[in-house]
């Protein structure tokens, strides 16, 4: 649950969402990620750290470079959680359908 909190909290920032959107197209270096934003490299690195700590991205070592990519497991954990919540909400409304059917039938009896 805490892990999910960190994931959703990480998503609350527009820059970090943009970084994830960029990474959904493939791996990128810190410089490539910093390019579209008017941010210093330390600022970008801070955002990357938040995403990494939340388990949403991972880094690879390639010489002096540390390219980042999406962490499939982290994204899937979020996805599963959201799907479960959605199911719970849909279950509520499916039950409400039944309740409404009961109300309609009662009305019918009165007629």
């Amino acid at each position: 649950m805490n892990g999910l909190n960190a994931k959703f909290a990480a998503l609350a920032d527009p820059t970090r969402r943009a970084i994830l959107a960029r990474l959904s197209q493939g791996e990128a270096t810190v410089n490539e990620l910093a390019e579209p934003f008017e941010l210093t490299q330390p600022a970008i690195s801070q955002h990357l750290k938040v995403l990494e700590d939340a388990g949403l991205i991972v880094r690879r070592v390639e010489g002096t470079k540390r390219p980042r990519r999406l962490a499939t497991e982290g994204i899937e954990a979020m996805d599963q959680w959201l799907a479960m919540l959605r199911t719970a909400l849909e279950k509520n409304y499916d039950r409400l359908d039944e309740v409404l059917l009961g109300i309609n039938q009662k009305k019918g009896e009165l007629r």
Binding site: M1, L4, N5, F8, L82, L85, R86, A88, L89, N92
Partner: peptide, 9 residues
């Protein structure tokens, strides 16, 4: 969204 959204999400 992370903590349950009382009725789910």
């Amino acid at each position: 969204l992370a903590t349950g959204m009382e009725r789910g999400m």
